[in-house]
């Protein structure tokens, strides 16, 4: 399905819970920044951190926003959360402008901020019970506490919790109001594997309930596991979007890699001529090979036939497809900027 078709399928008569159209956000740089980067300045002497980002999030889907550090993800989200006004473009959160939103709108939006935003000198359950008082029909604090294992460390003030424990409290704080829209900034950062599994289960449950979820992460493995739809942004602009499958398909060079370890020497010449064109065989280390390219079942057949004819039993043999991480690095560049 093309991006256009996918869009139509997503939209299919529904209204997005969050719609951002051509968002622009500027900031006033310091003098030293202005002097070092004159080419980035607008006529007014400002810098555009977000230069026309658009995205939609529909009820019951997890939308992942990907971008390198400084790409404009957090700024975009903080405009959508009503923490900053936009300098251009339109934002609609459940049909309202999030900047200066009513308490009634805020009650339908749950936010997990990157830095947590939790007071330090209080015990987790006391905090959650306090936040629950802001809502008419809050979720059960006891259930959330149980689910996220917060009771294990409730005797400790938030100041003394580990990073992963704080993350769990921040997630509970975002969920306590039974939101319709959920913003999760790096929800799995610093979590142990057990907590991560629980957090993923909770995110999937919220999706089942019809909650619109916006998630940012740098862990592309997590993004690949959770995302219904992905937007990739770079330098304050949209670069590409689609389902994970689409993104993997549309940038399909080097679609697969077979890695194997064999004691005897192998070369591409051992393959039938018509299978040599679209692939490369590299020896990464003595006896360790990678066959990379647009692999077909025929390639696998040829490889195993080779093993049979030369009496090779490979000590390892792995087929891997391209991951979202490969796509992301290709699109947003492999260099650190």
């Amino acid at each position: 399905m093309s991006v256009q078709n996918q869009r139509i399928a997503r939209e299919s008569g529904r209204k997005p819970a969050l719609s951002i159209d051509g968002l622009i956000k500027e900031f006033k740089p310091s003098r030293s920044f202005r002097e070092a980067n004159p080419h980035l300045l607008t006529d007014r002497g400002t810098v555009q951190a977000v230069r026309g980002i658009s995205l939609d999030v529909y009820p019951g889907e997890v939308v992942v926003l990907l971008g390198a550090n400084g790409a404009g993800k957090t700024t975009t989200l903080s405009c959508a959360q009503g923490l900053q006004p936009a300098d251009g473009g339109t934002l609609q959160l459940l049909g309202e402008n999030p900047w200066g939103a009513s308490p009634e709108l805020r009650a339908q939006v749950g936010i997990m901020l990157q830095d947590g935003g939790l007071p330090q000198a209080i015990h987790p359950i006391e905090l959650l019970k306090h936040i629950a008082k802001m809502y008419k029909n809050p979720a059960s604090v006891d259930d959330l506490v149980q689910r996220l294992g917060i009771n294990e460390f409730n005797g400790t003030t938030i100041r003394r919790l580990s990073g992963g424990q704080k993350q769990r409290v921040a997630l509970a704080a975002a969920l306590v109001g039974n939101p319709k829209v959920l913003f999760l900034d790096e929800p799995s950062a610093g979590l142990d594997p057990q907590s991560r599994t629980v957090v993923f289960d909770i995110i999937r449950e919220q999706r089942e309930r019809g909650v619109a979820i916006v998630l940012t992460t740098h862990l592309l493995d997590d993004a690949q596991r959770l995302a219904d739809y992905v937007y990739i942004v770079k330098r304050g602009e949209n670069v590409t979007e689609g389902t994970v499958a689409q993104l993997l398909q549309e940038t399909n060079e080097q679609a697969h890699t077979v890695s194997f370890t064999a004691a005897s020497a192998i070369s591409l010449q051992d393959f039938p001529a018509h299978l040599r064109d679209s692939v490369t065989l590299t020896q990464d280390a003595p006896g360790q090979y990678s066959l990379t390219g647009e692999l077909t079942p025929e390639h696998l057949n040829a490889l195993t036939t080779l093993f049979v004819s030369q009496g090779i039993m490979p000590s390892s043999f792995t087929l891997a497809s391209r991951t979202l991480e490969d796509v992301f690095l290709d699109i947003s560049g492999r260099d650190i900027r």
């Binding site: 805020r106 009650a107 936010i111 947590g116 935003g117 802001m134 109001g177």
Partner: peptide, 21 residues
């Protein structure tokens, strides 16, 4: 001052409490 530093003001202003509250 410390609530502001730890992002508590930001977080609470996104709940129904809001800045005014």
């Amino acid at each position: 001052g410390f609530d502001r530093r730890y992002g508590v003001l930001r977080f609470l202003s996104t709940t129904p409490l809001g800045r005014g509250g």
